[in-house]
Design a protein around this nucleic acid. Structure first.
Length: 584
DNA sequence: GCCGTTTTCGGCCCGACTGTTTTCAGTCG
């Protein structure tokens, strides 16, 4: 039975391929399928069990989508989707991820100069062939070349953005847990460490009999092609070309296997060295005494860490960057946890042009999720179409007053997500800004400025007394758009000096501030962070955990995350910067 | 493709900006 998640993935793929077919990402047919996928994503009951009549009652789902859903449920494929896949192979689709290359240009490249993948595009760039094409010039060539380089696209050994991989991995793990005889199933590898991009997915299963697991896996709908099908290990590819390895181990060896396949390689090497120091050996089956051959630990990761004299190291920390020494010294950071979070400080509603849930729904959902405080941060006036005029800000204030009465236990701040201009300037004016309870300032344009200019504009925004936090610092979209180049140490210094926080944005395709940048601040305790969902829909509050994972990967301590603080403490801190400026 | 209805088509959110070209494609939220 196809899950909703699987159907969402299929419909999204269809929409993605339609962009090429229609020649525009904005084509109404593309948007219609995207909207249908949204509707399925928000559905609680299984769409696979619904009739056509029931499906078309969903907002955004019509006859064509409903029939495609039923076709997929009945046959495991959609004829029109298969035809599109044939016409536009993944290597061609990948080209549309490069900023500056839309569907029209990609098809132009294919038809005029026979560019079908990243490798051929690179060759064409080297030969300066793009500038000969209509609508493209030397600047476009330079921009595209730089984007390819910074996105790490190489053609063959490409890695997939975590947002594409995580739903598939969860689908596989959940399905395998249902197989009779399976004791445990987890994904391991860089995905478990919560890396931004994933090479391939490693799934580990504890079961006494591997056969049924292997059979169940190759029959999963997500599996498009089986590369190798052995007794305890199977390798398969999805339709998008993502490799998934499933290994079955004995339940008594699950911990050792999970540890081994979670890595990182550098982390494992350090652990093995510690084992050797004790006269032991550590491999994917067990931690064992070399002399006697007797097993020391194998069933759980924790037992192995304990035997090695270490505290348990959370998967997000296992990068070989000092976590083993810290674990030995008992000096691992007290990382932030999902349960620690009390407020959400970056939330949109339909008042913003791109919001998809009403203000009432967003506030109600925040309350139902047990949040103690939220900041409604609609887009500001400089963002064409999406932003609120001053009059609208005043109108929303009245709505918020009404909601405060309806939800007395929830502290609701009126905020704004301001746009940081190329020179660091912000929306509205000084006095108007000072009247907000909470301001997020974010870069939404001019992603290509040199590093010095990017750093300067961020520092200018930080210096403004009304700016409480810098939103999604780099502006990156993982696998799609490189972030701005910015001197992150200078940003940390300025943030610390002014009492301005840095947001850790929870969207899976942002995860911004990136973990490697966060790690640069791990020795300092003067920088404050907030973990925000940047929700545009009620369902996106649940993205919180992704931001928390990313914060943990960046060694961010709970005590430095302002939205773990109790309401009174948080409010006091949030007011301080404005108040200081007023007095000064 | 979906929706709504004054029901069978017209509207769907779109203005600013860049690069390139002189009318348009792509990008941003």
């Amino acid at each position: 039975m196809a899950t909703n998640r699987e159907l969402v993935r299929i419909i999204r793929e269809y929409a993605e391929l339609l962009k090429l077919e229609e020649g525009s990402p904005q084509a109404f047919r593309v948007r219609a399928y995207d909207k249908a996928a949204d509707a399925l994503g928000e559905l609680v009951e299984p769409a696979a069990e619904m009739s056509i009549a029931e499906l078309v009652k969903l907002d955004g789902v019509g006859k064509a989508t409903a029939e495609k859903i039923q076709e997929y449920v009945a046959t495991g494929s959609i004829a029109k989707l298969d035809a599109l896949r044939e016409k536009y192979p993944p290597s061609l689709v990948e080209l549309t991820r490069i900023p500056g290359l839309g569907p029209k240009t990609v098809l132009l490249l294919r038809d005029k100069i026979n560019v079908n993948n990243v490798a051929e595009l690179k060759a064409a760039l080297a030969k300066q062939q793009l500038r000969e094409l209509p609508g493209l010039g030397a600047k476009s060539e330079a921009k595209i070349a730089k984007a390819i380089d910074r996105l790490g696209l190489h053609g063959k050994d490409r890695r997939s953005p975590i947002i594409n991989v995580l739903p598939i991995a969860r689908e596989v793990v959940e399905a395998l847990r249902e197989v009779p005889g399976v004791k445990q199933a987890e994904y391991a590898g860089s995905l478990r460490r919560f890396s931004d991009t994933i090479g391939d997915v490693d799934v580990l299963v504890a079961a006494s009999k591997p056969g049924p697991v292997m059979d169940a896996f190759v029959n999963l709908p997500v599996v498009a092609r089986v590369e190798a099908h052995g007794e305890t290990k199977t390798t398969a590819l999805t339709a998008e070309g993502l490799q998934i390895d499933v290994r079955v181990v004995a339940p008594g060896e699950f911990g050792a296997a999970l540890l081994y396949f979670t890595g990182s390689k550098a982390h494992n090497i350090e652990l093995r060295q510690l084992a050797i120091d004790q006269g032991w050996t550590l491999n994917e089956y067990e931690l064992a005494d070399v002399a006697t051959g007797k097993s020391v630990a194998a069933r759980t990761e924790n037992a192995i860490y304990k035997a090695l004299g270490l505290r348990f190291v959370e998967p997000e920390l296992r990068e070989g960057v000092g976590e083993v020494a810290a674990a030995a010294a008992g000096k691992l950071p007290r990382l932030v946890d999902v349960e620690d979070i009390r407020g959400d400080l970056h939330v949109h509603s339909t008042w913003s042009g791109d919001g998809r849930s009403s203000l009432d729904d967003m506030v109600r959902t925040a309350s139902e999720r047990g949040l103690e405080y939220i900041a409604m941060t609609e887009h500001a006036e400089n963002l064409a179409i999406n932003g609120l005029s001053r009059e609208q800000v005043t109108e929303e204030a009245a709505e918020l007053a009404r909601l405060r009465e309806a939800y007395p236990k929830l502290t609701i701040l009126q905020g704004s997500e301001l746009n940081i201009g190329p020179d660091g300037s912000l929306d509205y004016d000084h006095d108007f800004l000072m009247d907000f309870d909470w301001c997020v300032a974010s870069v939404h344009s001019h992603f290509d400025l040199p590093q010095a200019d990017q750093t300067a504009r961020i520092l200018t925004a930080i210096a403004h007394p009304a700016v409480n936090v810098i939103g999604h610092l780099t502006g990156r979209r993982i696998g799609k758009r490189p972030g701005i180049e910015v001197d992150v140490d200078a940003v940390f210094d300025a943030a610390a000096a002014t009492g301005t926080a840095l947001e850790i944005n929870c969207h899976l395709d942002r995860l911004d501030v990136p973990a490697d940048m966060l790690r640069r601040a791990r020795e300092r305790s003067d920088v404050t962070f907030v973990i925000s969902t940047d929700s545009h829909h009620v369902n996106e509050f649940a993205n919180l955990r992704w931001g928390v994972h990313n914060a943990r990967r960046g060694w961010v301590q709970k005590k430095l995350v302002a939205n773990t603080w109790p309401t009174h403490r948080f409010l006091e801190w949030a007011r301080r910067k404005r108040d200081t400026a007023r007095v000064g």
